[in-house]
Computed example of a mutant assay.
Amino acid sequence: MIELAKVSTTIFAPVAVVFDYVTNMENYGEWFPGVMAIRSGNNLPHATVGKTYLETLQLPGGEHELSIDVVQSEAPRLFLTQGDLEGILPQMTMRFSEEQEGACTFDLQYHSRDSSLSEESEIITALRKDLAERAVVALVNLKNKF
């Protein structure tokens, strides 16, 4: 896998509260820039392995639609999704920890799972720049939610 972005912040709210909010991916568009729309793709509860979402995402080059699957969820510590966007095959990893009482350390990472890409691929270079900028804004937005 190729790392695309990695950011971290402290949110002054209990870990379980932050986990519940961000793992309901229908909230993703409220805090992550460029998410045009996102909705549940099945009736499983949020933060459940097998839950799917349908997302419309603005990327360099235009809007893209993708399906996102929850592939790992360990409340309230870890949440991992994988998308089917061809040419990138994105993976998002969220980690939650309590460094001090009432505060959540939130780590957010994005990777490409597409084995045909290399670190030097044009799309990787463009995505790294774009996602790094968006991820910083996303953490500010997320902190403001709490």
Score class of each variant (00 low, 15 high):
Ile2Gln: 14
Leu4His: 07
Thr9Val: 12
Ala13Gln: 10
Pro14Thr: 05
Pro14Ser: 08
Val15Ser: 06
Val17Asn: 11
Val18Phe: 03
Val18Met: 05
Phe19Tyr: 15
Phe19Ser: 01
Phe19Gly: 10
Asp20Ala: 14
Asp20Ile: 06
Val22Asn: 00
Val22Ala: 01
Thr23Val: 12
Asn24Thr: 11
Asn24Gly: 05
Asn24Lys: 12
Met25Phe: 14
Glu26Arg: 13
Tyr28Gln: 05
Gly29Thr: 08
Glu30Ala: 12
Glu30Asn: 15
Trp31Met: 03
Trp31Gly: 00
Trp31Glu: 01
Phe32Trp: 12
Gly34Leu: 09
Val35Asp: 10
Met36Leu: 13
Ala37Glu: 06
Ala37Tyr: 01
Ile38Leu: 07
Ile38Arg: 03
Arg39His: 12
Ser40Phe: 09
Gly41Phe: 04
Gly41Ala: 05
Gly41Asn: 04
Asn42Arg: 02
Thr48Phe: 00
Val49Lys: 06
Gly50Phe: 01
Gly50Ser: 03
Gly50Ile: 08
Thr52Ala: 01
Leu59Ala: 08
Leu59Gly: 10
Pro60Trp: 00
Pro60Asp: 01
Gly61Met: 01
Glu63Thr: 09
Leu66Arg: 13
Ile68Thr: 11
Asp69Ser: 09
Asp69Leu: 05
Val70Glu: 00
Glu74Met: 08
Glu74Leu: 13
Glu74Thr: 12
Arg77Thr: 12
Phe79Tyr: 11
Leu80Trp: 00
Gln82Cys: 06
Gly83Ile: 02
Asp84Trp: 02
Leu85Ala: 07
Leu85Met: 11
Glu86Lys: 15
Gly87Gln: 03
Gly87Asn: 06
Ile88Val: 09
Leu89Pro: 00
Pro90Ser: 08
Thr93Asp: 04
Thr93His: 04
Arg95His: 10
Arg95Lys: 07
Arg95Leu: 08
Glu98Arg: 06
Glu99Asp: 10
Glu101Leu: 11
Ala103Glu: 04
Cys104Leu: 02
Cys104Lys: 02
Phe106Ser: 05
Asp107Pro: 02
Gln109Glu: 15
Tyr110Glu: 06
Tyr110Trp: 09
His111Leu: 07
His111Asp: 08
His111Met: 03
His111Glu: 03
Arg113Thr: 07
Arg113His: 03
Asp114Ser: 07
Ser115His: 10
Leu117Phe: 02
Glu119Thr: 14
Glu120Ser: 15
Ser121Thr: 04
Glu122Cys: 05
Ile123Lys: 01
Ile124Asn: 10
Ile124Glu: 06
Thr125Gly: 01
Thr125Lys: 13
Lys129Thr: 04
Asp130Thr: 11
Asp130Leu: 01
Glu133Val: 05
Arg134Lys: 13
Ala135Met: 04
Val136Arg: 13
Val136Gln: 11
Val136Asp: 14
Leu142Phe: 00
Lys143Cys: 10
Lys145Gln: 07
Phe146Pro: 00
Phe146Thr: 10
